[in-house]
Amino acid sequence: MANETPSVKMLANLREKLKPLNIPIKFKLPKQDTLEPFLVIGQSSSDTSKTAQTGLIIEDMSVQIDIFLPGTESRAGVEKIKSEALRRIGHNRNVNASVLLDDTIGREVYHIVIALTDTIF
């Protein structure tokens, strides 16, 4: 769409890059009865302090990607999915990833948290 903002394009681009993982992609955390695996392209924030008074908007956009996998998944399988997701996202200015066991959704699951920041124009 011609009226899409750079941030909307970035989120759509992330979705396209992550589709080959064959994990359902959401943009908000689903209800508690939704079983894993699923991926949430969620929390985002932006900083436009690099933008000059006139001209092109320069935006540092931070996005958090959460991948939820069944607690029965092997740790090696979880690490493989994390690596594949990072590879598919590609090179960004700043990417951090962690793996944790999480029971905040009412059952123990593996939770991969990927936080990335990229400059968009």
Rank of each mutant, 00 (worst) to 15 (best):
N13T: 10
A52G: 14
Q53Y: 08
L18K: 10
I65A: 10
S45T: 14
K50S: 12
I58P: 00
D102E: 10
K26I: 01
L21F: 09
E16R: 04
I67G: 00
P70G: 10
A115C: 04
A97H: 08
I23C: 08
N22K: 13
Q32S: 02
S49Q: 15
Q43E: 06
I65V: 14
D66Q: 01
A12L: 08
L39R: 00
M10I: 05
K26H: 10
F27Q: 10
N96E: 13
D118W: 05
T117D: 07
I41H: 01
I25E: 07
M61I: 15
V99A: 07
K17G: 02
E79I: 12
R15D: 06
I120Y: 07
L11V: 14
D103C: 03
D47M: 07
G55P: 13
V63C: 05
N92A: 11
Q43G: 09
L11R: 13
L11W: 02
A52H: 10
N92T: 06
R107D: 12
P70E: 11
V63D: 01
R75F: 13
I67M: 10
F121A: 09
A85N: 10
P6D: 08
D102H: 10
T54H: 08
L18N: 06
T72S: 15
T119K: 13
T48S: 14
A85C: 02
A85K: 10
P70T: 07
K82S: 12
L14P: 08
I65D: 11
S62D: 13
N94D: 15
S98T: 08
I67T: 05
F38P: 02
V63H: 01
V95P: 05
V109Y: 11
K17Y: 04
D118F: 02
F27P: 04
G90W: 03
S49Y: 09
N96R: 12
T5M: 06
S44A: 07
Q32D: 03
R87A: 13
S98H: 08
L29Q: 04
K17M: 03
D118E: 14
D33M: 03
M61E: 15
V109M: 11
L18D: 14
F121K: 05
S46E: 15
K31W: 03
T5Y: 07
I41G: 00
K19T: 09
E108V: 13
S98M: 08
K50N: 15
T48A: 12
I105R: 12
T72P: 06
E79N: 14
Q43S: 09
G71Y: 11
K9M: 09
S44E: 06
K50C: 08
P37S: 00
D118K: 12
R93V: 12
I105P: 00
D33Y: 04
T119P: 01
T104H: 00
M10T: 08
G55C: 06
I81D: 08
E73R: 12
L69R: 04
Q64M: 09
M61D: 05
L18V: 07
V40H: 02
A2P: 03
L69W: 02
K50T: 04
I114N: 02
I25C: 03
P6W: 09
T51I: 07
Q43P: 00
T72D: 08
D103P: 03
S62G: 13
L86M: 12
E79H: 11
